[in-house]
Design a protein around this nucleic acid. Structure first.
Length: 798
DNA sequence: CTCCCATCATTTTTT
DNA sequence: ATGATGGGAG
């Protein structure tokens, strides 16, 4: 097959880090070296076996921190180095773009140039690549749009409304979840219809929505996220010659994080690794299909809610008879204390294969526990500890704070800002999900794929140009009545007989898009975008707005233009659709920049696959760490436990577990209970700086902290907050920690005495930074040393 | 058609 | 507490 895969866009951000430099194991030096290859240097016997095994199917059960990326990259490198495969015959699939980029970099570090022709990508980008190439074969064109979940949501919402299904209790959220689930099971409208009970009005209504949604996608020449996988499988099954081409091409398929694959992804792997036979075509059965290597750890399966099927990994040997299974249990990441905690927690999941991580590095520090009065209190503890670590030489970038839900970031952020602690939130509302960025992207999409009515309707009145819902509907039915596409209907807007102002607005938008399309031919992605966002008045409108946030929005759009320029630089031959694809498929963990010198904040899900010297697990409370929603799901609590396990095993040297006695949610403050998982960690491993009292109260010795008198409650001493005068605590939980004050241009110099609402009196030691970012370093009389952002700290000079 | 205000639901995790 | 949504006035 003639193919020149474009280099992965993300390879532009090299993250060369061979974490296994430290993997030299005492005692392993005497092992014989197969082929004298440096690729086996520093590997333990199981790791070597995983690199060297050759067979049809290999399952590497890789515990957390057991060096699986190292094994995977060396395995690829050894295939290349021994001339067992050409780069183009290798397909490696990872979970995130970041993991793909890292893998490519590490293979490149091992074998150099040969790393270039390989396909190393996520399921989604690999499928997009295949689909773009083959789109014409089955009713799509190669410039199809990729709808992310919010796009699908918008479309579904519209359909629900059109069909009046909202009265039946259908919401965009539950419908899209159900459709997604079906697609992950490779069901389509027809197969669903065959099994549906049409006497059930609910089911009939759902089917009708599903059908309309599918039609709308096809009409818009668009795929949603799940289609990318499902349609590729369909393509392979419906067009054997196409499938055969890929089966012939890929001789080695490697899949990372196999425990998180869903049924559709499993089916895709199966299709790819089948022998390349065609019944009555040119090809004949030719022995074996591609060899398959999968790496995973069922204890780290945390995406069941999204359709990941843990059976894919637990039944691998059954699915692929003759498969070899290799266990990697030696951990090179964490201290023994951390691993013991992780092992004891995960041991409570009953239906798992026993697996115990161990390390040769020794016990290390104890795990530190802390119970705050409120989420803000907890956050203050985290901030203080991070400052201590930093003062002791741990760079901010080696510290991470994890939490179960995104809403927990609020308290952390407030405190971190006040403490002048540099931090970064991974995931959350992503850059590309911001409304203004999506608006700008919709302009580009409208140029690239004129059939995408969803994108067109999005920009029709953004910025405001007087085209309201009434006009939109008129335009829509006009196009329909005349057998025109929506886009062509815009061109003929004069025929609608609308007011001159509105007609003009439509025509000039249409003309602008045409102009953009002309420019696309010259391959200037950034120029096209720039033209669209300026000529449409999008940026101008934000600039003129009185909303103070709009200035930042305008900057975001300019940032997007900069991203497009960057894309052009990295991909000289890149087309508009390639840029759109790249933007559509970025993930939460992808924009992680290790060199940024900031503390990383992220959800436990985003944390998978990452590691830090010091890790803070926050909000270890009932209803939050087993999350309330998980209680009703079948396997929910077990999955939540795995999530906890994933979090624990991210830590190299230090692990902190924190919780709060009350937590604010929905603007209300509710009492919180310590998580049941805390008791699963042997008590001697945790040093409680301020204990929940409850960690052992279920055993029955100490009174429950939560029932005790607030002001009289005290955990262990030695902590600043616990030692604070009780009078200050009276207003707990909210008043103390939430306060922010605008100090304007308060001048402070070293030696000044100040009073802080929370920390009492103290003396300024130094002041650093400029203007709004001036930071006071203060030694408080009783609360210890703190950094404060002067502009907003609740302080006064005395 | 646009703007403003009141009401409402929202918070589990994401390729 | 905050952001989205819908109704009503201008």
């Amino acid at each position: 097959m003639a193919s020149t895969p474009t280099p992965d866009a993300h390879s532009a951000t090299p993250v060369i880090m061979d974490g296994w430099k430290t993997a030299a194991i005492p005692g392993a030096g005497g092992e014989k070296r197969a082929g004298g290859s440096r690729l086996l240097d520093g590997l333990n016997p199981q790791q070597r076996q995983a690199v060297e095994y050759r067979g049809q199917a290999l399952l590497i059960v890789a515990g957390a921190g057991s060096g699986k990326t190292s094994v995977l990259t060396r395995r690829i490198a050894s295939l290349l180095e021994n001339r067992e495969a050409w780069p183009s015959q290798i397909l490696a699939i990872t979970f995130t773009n970041k993991a793909a980029a890292e893998m490519r970099d590490r293979v490149r570090a091992l074998v150099g140039q040969a790393a270039e022709g390989m396909w190393i990508s996520t399921f989604h980008s690999a499928c997009v690549r295949i689909l773009r190439r083959e789109a014409e074969n089955f009713g799509f064109t190669k410039n199809f749009t990729i709808y992310d979940s919010s796009d699908s949501r918008v479309l579904i919402k519209r359909i629900i409304k059109e069909q009046g299904a909202d009265v039946l209790g259908f919401t965009p959220a539950n419908v899209s979840a159900k459709i997604s689930k079906l697609k992950n099971e490779l069901a389509d409208v027809d197969s669903y219809a065959r099994n549906a009970n049409m006497d059930d009005p609910n089911e009939a209504a759902f089917l009708s929505i599903f059908r309309a949604y599918t039609r709308a996608l096809t009409a818009a020449n668009a795929f949603d996220f799940d289609d990318l996988i499902g349609q590729t499988v369909y393509l392979f099954r419906a067009f054997p010659l196409v499938a055969a081409a890929y089966r012939t091409r890929f001789h080695h398929v490697l899949v990372d994080e196999y425990q998180d694959t869903n049924h559709a992804q499993y089916a895709l792997i199966r299709e790819l690794t089948r022998p390349p036979a065609v019944e009555d075509g040119a090809l004949v059965a030719a022995g074996n299909g591609a060899s398959l290597t999968v790496v995973g750890d069922s204890d780290q399966s945390i995406y069941a809610f999204r359709g990941a099927d843990i059976r894919n990994i637990t039944e691998f040997e059954h699915d692929f008879p003759g498969a070899e299974v290799i266990l990697l249990e030696q951990n090179y990441r964490s201290t023994q204390n951390i691993l013991t905690a992780a092992n004891s927690v995960i041991a409570n999941n009953f239906d798992r294969k026993d697996k115990k991580l161990w390390t040769a590095v020794g016990d290390g520090e104890k795990i530190v526990g802390y119970t705050g009065y409120s989420g803000h209190d907890e956050a203050q503890f985290v901030a203080d500890e991070i400052e201590k670590l930093h003062a002791a030489g741990t760079p901010y970038s080696d510290v991470a704070v994890f939490y179960r839900t995104n809403s927990q970031t609020r308290a952390l952020e407030e405190i971190f800002i006040r403490s002048a602690l540099p931090y970064r939130i991974m995931g959350g509302t992503k850059f590309y999900e911001r409304a203004e960025v999506k608006d700008a992207m919709a302009y580009l999409v409208s140029v690239a794929n004129p059939a995408d009515t969803l994108a067109l309707r999005r920009i029709l009145n953004t910025p405001k140009r007087g085209i309201g819902p009434a006009t939109e509907t008129a335009l829509f039915s006009f196009a329909e009545d005349n057998g025109l596409s929506f886009r062509d209907g815009m061109r003929e807007a004069t025929a609608l007989g609308l007011g001159p102002k509105v007609t003009n607005a439509i025509l000039s938008l249409s003309a602008l898009l045409d102009e953009g399309a002309k420019l696309v031919a010259e391959g200037k992605v950034a120029d096209v975008l720039s033209l669209l966002v300026t000529q449409s008045g999008l940026i101008e409108a934000l600039r003129r707005s009185h909303d103070p946030q709009d200035e930042a929005r305008a900057e975001n759009i300019e940032e997007l233009v900069a991203v497009a320029k960057e894309f052009e630089r990295n991909n000289p031959d890149g087309e508009l659709v390639d840029f759109l694809t790249e933007v559509s498929l970025v993930a939460a963990a992808d924009d992680l920049d290790d060199s940024s010198g900031t503390v990383s904040l992220m959800t436990l899900h985003t944390a998978k696959g990452l590691e830090y010297d010091a890790v803070f697990l926050t909000g270890i409370e009932e209803d939050l760490l087993p999350h309330r929603m998980s209680a009703s799901e079948p396997g929910g609590p077990a999955e939540e436990r795995r999530l906890f396990y994933v979090g624990i095993t991210r830590a190299r040297k230090r692990l902190y577990l924190s919780l709060a006695m009350t937590r604010a949610q929905y603007g209300e403050t509710a009492v919180a209970m310590p998580s049941r998982y805390l008791q699963e960690i042997p008590a001697e491993l945790i040093e409680w700086r301020q204990s929940p009292g409850m960690a052992n109260s279920r055993g029955g010795t100490q009174p429950r902290a939560l029932n005790a008198n607030r002001s009289g409650w005290s955990g262990t001493t030695g902590n600043a907050l616990a030692d604070r005068p009780l009078t200050e605590k009276r207003d707990w939980p909210n008043r103390i920690t939430n306060q922010v004050r605008n100090n304007g241009d308060l001048e402070l110099a070293s030696g000044d005495r100040i009073r802080h609402t929370d920390f009492g009196e103290g003396r300024v030691q130094t002041v650093t930074g400029e203007g709004a970012k001036r930071i006071a370093h203060v030694a408080f009389d009783s609360a210890g040393f703190k950094k404060l952002l002067i502009k907003i700290a609740p302080i006064e000079k005395i």
